[in-house]
């Protein structure tokens, strides 16, 4: 899809019997099963980490953090929802928390959050669009809200809880993200 790597279209995974067996084995401490689970879901986890962080290296570190914490917390998955949905929530929470630790003070101190100009992509003509490359260049808060709302389907109320921001701020950041995308996609 773009020059960042291989994006593979994938169907939503339901908790199939074989997935449940795999998850049960992991819950019982089977590391070989965990490796299989990793191979199966690393694409989804890394894809989400990459969109939330906007940087390859941060996304790699965040994805590792997700799988390390998942090993300890997989017993919390009871099988009453889609595993991929649960995993996406876990991934979002861990990545946001990871980003906060990594970048929080830098942004507070140097006020980098609003500096769009540093990352602004070249404007494209309408019809020639690589949305993902634009999304990762959005300012951090606008990017996180856009990814969680427009791509992952969370409501602003849920995003507000996940990110410790007000519901109004989440909506404002979403509007900001769309305005920037509109400009970058050559609509303004």
């Amino acid at each position: 899809m773009n020059n960042q790597g291989n994006v593979v279209a994938a169907e939503h995974k339901f908790v199939t019997e074989s997935d449940l067996d795999l998850i049960r084995s992991v819950q019982n401490g089977d590391k070989r099963a965990y490796n299989i689970l990793y191979q199966e879901y690393i694409g989804q986890v890394y894809g989400l980490c990459y969109r939330l962080t906007g940087e390859k290296m941060l996304a790699e570190d965040a994805a590792q953090e997700v799988f390390i914490q998942l090993w300890r917390k997989i017993s919390n998955f009871k099988g009453d929802s889609k595993f991929s949905t649960w995993l996406h929530t876990v991934t979002s929470n861990i990545t946001i928390s990871y980003l906060r630790k990594q970048k929080g003070w830098m942004q507070k101190m140097f006020n980098l959050e609003d500096s769009v100009a540093m990352n602004e992509p070249a404007e494209e003509s309408v019809g020639k669009v690589d949305l993902e490359s634009y999304v990762v260049k959005l300012p951090e808060r606008a990017r996180i809200v856009f990814v969680l709302h427009a791509i992952e389907g969370y409501r602003h109320e849920e995003i507000a809880q996940m990110t410790n921001m007000a519901v109004g701020s989440s909506k404002a950041q979403f509007h900001r993200a769309k305005q920037l995308l509109k400009e970058w996609m050559g609509y303004e």
Binding site: M1, Q4, G5, N6, V7, V8, A9, A10, H12, K31, N35, Y38, I42, G43, Q44, Y46, G47, Y50, K56, A59, E60, A63, Q64, F67, I68, W71, L131, E132, I151
Partner: peptide
Amino acid sequence: KLGREKQPERDLWQGID
């Protein structure tokens, strides 16, 4: 059109393991 998956360019399993 956006895909849900993206593969990392390096093997992350080693660090996790």
